[in-house]
Each structure stands twice: as C-alpha cells, then as structure tokens.
C-alpha cells in the first residue's frame, strides 16, 4: 500500500492519497495519470491491469486501486 501511495505521490505530490476519495470523479487523476499508473503498477507489482478494469470506481481512491491490484494478483 505504501509503495502504491508513493507511486501516486510521484504523479501529484500535493495530494494526500491515503485519505483522498473520488480521485477520478473530481478530476485529480486524468487519463494520462491513469495510464502512467497502469505502467508503473505493471513494473512495480508485476500486475497487468486489463483495459476493462480501467473504471472510475477502481481508481477513485488508493484503497480501491490497492484492492484491484490484490484481486488481479491473486488470480
């Protein structure tokens, strides 16, 4: 989780990702951020997020994103 937050902070240093909600809905993360994230998660966690999982609800908070990574990593 901490690793994920540090990736997120790499994109937007000024956001408190541990607490923030609605990241996509409120426009904190745009589509550029999202695909950068996907690439980093691919290399850091060795988890490939498929296109169909790129949904606002999966990227709205660090927690949701972490859950996604765990779920995909399990399979």
């Amino acid at each position: 989780m901490n690793e994920l937050i540090s990736i997120l902070n790499g994109l937007h240093p000024d956001v408190d990702f541990a607490e923030a909600e609605g990241l996509v809905d409120n426009g904190v993360l745009d589509s550029f951020d999202i695909i950068s994230l996907v690439a980093e998660i691919d290399s850091e966690f060795d988890v490939r997020i498929p296109a169909e999982e790129i949904l606002p609800e999966n990227f709205n908070s660090a927690k949701a994103l972490y859950e996604l990574i765990t779920r995909l990593g399990d399979n």
Binding site: S31, I34, I35, V38, A39, D42, I49, P50, A51
Partner: peptide, 11 residues
C-alpha cells in the same frame, strides 16, 4: 487509448 496503453507492446 486505454486498451492500447495497457497492451503488451506499450507496457
């Protein structure tokens, strides 16, 4: 955009 971004070659 998304499918391309997460495709093997791009990653």
């Amino acid at each position: 955009f998304y499918p391309l971004s997460v495709s093997g070659p791009i990653l």
